[in-house]
Design a protein around this nucleic acid. Sequence first.
DNA 1: TCTACGGCCTCACGCGGCGTGAGGGTCAAG
DNA 2: CTTGACCCTCACGCCGCGTGAGGCCGTAGA
Lengths: 251, 251
Amino acid sequence: MATTVGELASLARVSVRTLHHYDEIGLLRPSGRSGAGYRLYTEGDLQRLQQVLFFRELGFKLDEIARILADPGFDRRQTLLAQRALLVERADRARALVDLVDRTLKALEEGDTMNPEDTFEGFDPAKYEDEAKAWWGTTEAYAESRRRTSRYTKDDWKRMADESKATVDELAQAMDDGVTPTDARAMDLAEQHRLHLEHWFYPCSSAMHVGLGEMYVADPRFAAVYDQRRAGLSEFLRAAIQANAARANAL
Amino acid sequence: MATTVGELASLARVSVRTLHHYDEIGLLRPSGRSGAGYRLYTEGDLQRLQQVLFFRELGFKLDEIARILADPGFDRRQTLLAQRALLVERADRARALVDLVDRTLKALEEGDTMNPEDTFEGFDPAKYEDEAKAWWGTTEAYAESRRRTSRYTKDDWKRMADESKATVDELAQAMDDGVTPTDARAMDLAEQHRLHLEHWFYPCSSAMHVGLGEMYVADPRFAAVYDQRRAGLSEFLRAAIQANAARANAL
DNA sequence: TCTACGGCCTCACGCGGCGTGAGGGTCAAG
DNA sequence: CTTGACCCTCACGCCGCGTGAGGCCGTAGA
């Protein structure tokens, strides 16, 4: 008329330890005990266990399951809808990451076939020192920037402004399209932004770029420029820069 | 020339505790310490951190990341491909679960609108007792089965066999199509199997059905019948029955 | 009747990736 | 000289169990 832990465990394909655990936390107490203290489970217990496993499968936490089962009048619809949203998010995220891996793999291959001597450059001490200075004290970058910009003509400034505006517009459009900062499109725009800086102002390593991104949200003078174009744009750019730098560094 | 934990933490959008942890486990040691023992991070540290966060984002475990970064010649392609497979699996699973939630919601609604008196039936003590007996001792079910089958004509037997074969064929086809046991299609077939038993032999509660599923894999006489039709079919049926019972019980 | 042997019991630590205090030093500003 | 915002090092907590250790129960064979 009743089963022991081991039997129930093999029936439901869970470990004995799991049943012990569920007993401990009160999620599934055996209906009885034998004289020797053995746990005895009834059919009702099996049914409850199946309910537990069903919700566990859906990713509910054990205490949530306990609450769901405690009150049969509990709004299952509501609960399931919430869990659905969570699962959709998880699926989307996993898909996005697969995408990220794919792009990383592609970048790896291209990098391999196109410029194998990069391996050397990565260890160029001079370059490294340069980058370090540039990021840890903005002064060096600032000096370089002034050296360059002092020779720009009005025409140069206009072209620079046009380019800049284009990038900002594309970023805003990406946001409107619901693109996330870790998306390829956003990262590519961040890279475009970095190249823009390199071209017009000063050498800008990805590390330095990250620092700048921070400044864009932290310094209201910068933030205003972006957020005026579109709410939250400065934060979006910062995140995209981070993602882009992370990708670049990991290769 | 160097930052403190707090600064690096806010730069990289991680907690100070996380950096402490990475220091503890040796994943990211600060390049230096101040006189007072403060952690001091260089730009190189930031870059390494970004590498760490990149791989963490992809779902690598911290010790795996350590191994990847330890050896620059590490086969990143291979590693990324493996991770990709893992992520694809995760995405598929999440999608399947969303599907399961949807079907559960649908079943909930239909159940609500079509037969509200089921709530009563669920608490019918007579029925419950019957089910309990049927499952915990197969004898009762066996007796009922014999009572019924003793009156079957040759024609009845043939129709029963045809129905049975059809279900088995559909199950095999589902397997061929790569359907998983927790998929709706598999669960529906399991339910069909259960109804088949109810119709031709004896009342078969979902709990009892689970018990039978166990027997199908455990008892070689039964397993052979299914596995002869298609390798692994008995195990597939068992899993589908489990899933179907779990779904039914959770509603 | 003794002895295996398998199943059951109760602790209790371990894992992964940190969160979250407690209790105390350090450092620049007022 | 004090405040307050940093920083430090323990060290326990979380979640869902896995994995022993050390010992009792129950049945079957020698």
